[in-house]
Amino acid sequence: MSYQRFASVLAALSVLLCASLPAAAAGWPDRPLHLIVPFGAGSTPDIVARLVSDKLQQRIGEPVVVINKPGAGGNLGTQLVAEAAPDGYTLGLTISGPLAANTLLFKNLPYDPQRDLDYLTIAATQPSILVVSAKSGITDMPSLLAKLRSNPGKYNFSSMGVGSISHLAMEALAASSGTEIVHVPYASSAQAVTALLSGQTQMAILPAAMVMAQIHAGTLKALAVATAKRFAVMPEVPTLSEAGLKNVQGDAWMGFVMPAKTPAAITQRLTKEIVAIVNSPDIKKKLQAQYMEPVGDTPAEFRAIVRGDLERWAPIIKKNHITLD
C-alpha cells in the first residue's frame, strides 16, 4: 500500500471513530454502569457512592454497580477508573489523596490525575475537627498553642496514616503556629480516636463522623474546625483561621471522576444527575446525618479544588520529607 493510500485509510478511520462517539453517547446507557470506590465497604466514600448509585440508576434507567477496590491509599481503584475505556460505563468516587496529595507522596504514580481523568463534581464534603482529650485540661486554641509553643516536641498527635489528610493538616498546623508536634500514625480513624481516648496521643484533626459521638459524650473536646467556615452542627467552634492559623484546612471531600475522553454528552448528563441527587431533600438529609454537606459543583470548580489542595500540601510534604514509596 502506498503512503498516500495508507494516509487516506487512516484519515477515514479517524473520521469513523470520531463519528461513532456521538452515536454511542446517543444510545447511552444500554447496560449497567460500574462505580469504582477506591476504599472498603462501609467507608465514608462507600456510603456516599451507595446513596448516589441508588438514585442514579433510577434516573438513567440502568443499574449502577458499586465496586470496592481499596489499596495503595486509594490509588488502586482510581487507577482502574483512569485506565478504563472512556465509553461512559465506568466512573469512580474518590477523595483528595488519589487526585492531589498522592501525586506528591508517590514517586511513580501509575496515572496522571489531571491528564487521565475527567472531573464531574464533588458530591459531598465533611469537615475535619481538631480535638483533644477532655481530660487534657486544654479548653481552647490559645491554651493549646501556648502549651505547644512552650514545649516543642513534647506533645504528639494521632492520624489515620502517613500522608492522610489527618496527618498533613496537623503538620500544616505545626508549621503555621511555629511549633513542633510528634506524629503517631495509625491504620484507621478508629485507632486514632482510641489512642486519643487512652492518652497515647494528645490531639488529632479527624473527620467529623469519626469524633462527633465522643464530642457529644464529653470524652473529646473540639477546639476548632479545619475548614474555611464554621461547621453548622457546632457553630460555636471557631475555624483554625479564626485562631490565626492561615491555610490550615482539612476538608474531607469526595468527588466523581470518569476516564479521560469520555464523550462530553455523557459526562455532562452524569454531572447534572449527580448534582441533582446530592441536593435532593432526602439525600441531603442522609448526608447531614453523617455530618456531611452536599456540594454539587462544576467540573471546573472541582479541578480548582484539587489545584488548591496541591498548592496547600506541596510545601508541607516537602518540608517534612513525607513519602509513601
Rank of each mutant, 00 (worst) to 15 (best):
Y89G: 12
V64C: 13
V65P: 01
T94P: 03
P63Y: 12
G97I: 01
D87N: 15
E62G: 00
S96A: 15
A85M: 15
Y89Q: 05
I67G: 00
P86I: 01
L99T: 10
G97S: 14
V81N: 00
G77S: 11
G92Q: 03
P86W: 09
L80A: 09
N75E: 02
Q79R: 14
S96L: 11
G77I: 10
P63C: 04
S96D: 15
I67S: 14
L91H: 06
G88K: 13
G71Y: 15
G71K: 14
K69A: 11
L80V: 05
A100D: 10
T78W: 05
N68C: 02
P63N: 02
G74R: 05
G73W: 05
G77Q: 09
G92F: 02
G71W: 15
Y89M: 04
V81K: 03
T78R: 09
V66A: 01
G77L: 10
P70V: 10
P63F: 11
L93M: 14
A100G: 13
D87Q: 06
K69T: 11
P86Y: 05
V81Q: 01
G71A: 06
I60M: 06
G74V: 05
G71T: 03
L93D: 00
A84W: 07
D87K: 13
I95D: 09
P98D: 06
G71D: 04
Q79N: 13
V65N: 15
G73H: 07
L80C: 01
G61N: 11
T94Q: 04
V64T: 06
E83G: 04
G92T: 01
V64I: 02
V64G: 09
G88M: 12
N68S: 11
D87E: 09
Q79L: 15
A82W: 07
S96V: 14
P86Q: 06
A100P: 10
A100W: 08
T90E: 05
N75P: 00
V64R: 08
G71Q: 11
A72C: 12
I60P: 02
G97N: 12
A85Y: 13
A72I: 03
L76G: 00
T78E: 06
L93Y: 01
L93I: 14
P98F: 01
T94H: 03
G88C: 12
L80F: 11
V65M: 09
E62I: 12
T94W: 04
V66I: 13
L93K: 03
Q79A: 15
E62T: 14
G71F: 14
K69G: 00
I67L: 15
G74N: 06
G61H: 05
P98L: 07
A84V: 02
G92C: 07
E83R: 12
A82C: 07
P70C: 08
Y89T: 05
V64H: 07
G88Q: 10
Y89W: 04
N75D: 02
L91Q: 05
L99I: 09
L93E: 01
T94R: 07
L80Y: 10
P63M: 09
L93Q: 02
E62P: 04
N68T: 00
P98S: 09
P86G: 09
A100Q: 07
G97L: 10
L93V: 08
G61S: 06
A84G: 01
Y89E: 06
P98M: 08
